[in-house]
């Protein structure tokens, strides 16, 4: 588009978007299409796609939602790396040609929309929820768990995963193996093993330490390189391997499990605080 690059228009430059298109109803094979996008200050790759949809080609499809790097929807292969489109400014790519392809290692539904179902299946397979031996306590929690700051820091980094799927795109093993669990699910499985509130490590072992689990990781480190939230899945996987190695020589101590906080006894409310409304959910006696 020939918009003037004036101070008033705010346009710094014009870049060329080369987007891999695939419409299953029409195309047999994917094809590249070029668009010229004017760039203003602070414009992200996602903003550019929205501009194209608004002004040039309304048929271009992709997933996006929060536009601020927390929902994990807009993962795409941009200029040689899997990235979140909303998390990368066009000027920070240092190129006048922005090449966008759908995330590798996932089937393509259409244009830039990957089929992330395999990612979610593998995630479900590691049982990504707290498991307690006391089933009654798990279904009807009586109170909060005690956990120290140190215990929190040992796993909280891995809990920041937004399930964007960039790590599986980057992983070379996931490139050839459809059975490999992948950095995302292995990290989430190990996140629960590290969590002192969890007692279900034995239930996840069969998946995490299977022949398609952590041992098919060979530390290419690409997953940690592309993770937009600093989760560092490679670290979690190597910690899991170290733990299993030490356990096979019987040299691993069981970590203590977080206990449930007892109900507060003998408390008296301050006089000027109004009474709370009645609970709408059935309560156990505290």
């Amino acid at each position: 588009m020939n918009q003037p690059q004036t101070k008033e228009s705010g346009i710094i430059k014009t870049v060329t978007y080369e987007v891999l298109r695939y419409e299953p109803a029409k195309d047999r094979a994917p094809r590249f299409e070029k668009y010229h996008v004017p760039v203003t200050k602070g414009m992200t790759v996602l903003d550019g796609l929205l501009w194209i949809k608004e002004h040039t080609d309304h048929t271009l499809s992709w997933r996006s939602s929060c536009r601020m790097g927390v929902c994990g929807s807009c993962g795409m292969f941009i200029n040689g790396l899997p990235r979140l489109a909303c998390n990368n400014q066009i000027v920070h790519l240092h190129s006048d040609r922005i090449t966008i392809k759908p995330l590798p290692n996932y089937d393509i539904i259409r244009d830039l929309v990957p089929d992330l179902e395999t990612l979610f299946e593998k995630h479900r397979a590691v049982k990504p929820y707290l498991i307690r031996k006391d089933k009654e306590e798990q279904s009807h929690p009586a109170g909060e768990y005690f956990q120290t700051e140190q215990e929190l820091v040992s796993y909280i980094q891995f809990a920041y995963c937004i399930k964007c799927g960039l790590c599986l795109s980057a992983c070379p093993t996931a490139g050839t193996s459809q059975n490999y669990m992948g950095p995302q699910s292995l990290t989430q499985g190990w996140r629960y093993a590290l969590d002192s509130r969890d007692e279900g490590a034995a239930q996840r072992e069969a998946e995490i330490f299977s022949e398609h689990g952590v041992y098919r990781c060979h530390f290419a480190g690409a997953c940690s390189q592309v993770c937009p939230k600093g989760v560092d899945p490679a670290l979690a996987i190597q910690l899991a391997k170290k733990d299993a190695f030490l356990r096979s020589f019987g040299r691993r101590k069981q970590r203590p499990t977080a206990s449930v906080a007892p109900p507060v006894q003998n408390w008296v409310p301050k006089a000027d605080i109004p009474k709370a409304p009645e609970p709408t959910v059935p309560q156990k006696n505290r």
């Binding site: 072992e205 330490f209 299977s210 022949e211 689990g213 041992y215 391997k241 299993a244 190695f245 096979s248």
Partner: peptide
């Protein structure tokens, strides 16, 4: 686990 033992021997 079997795979864990095999991998530990791979390292050793």
């Amino acid at each position: 686990m079997r795979e864990s033992r095999l991998w530990s021997w791979h390292i050793i």
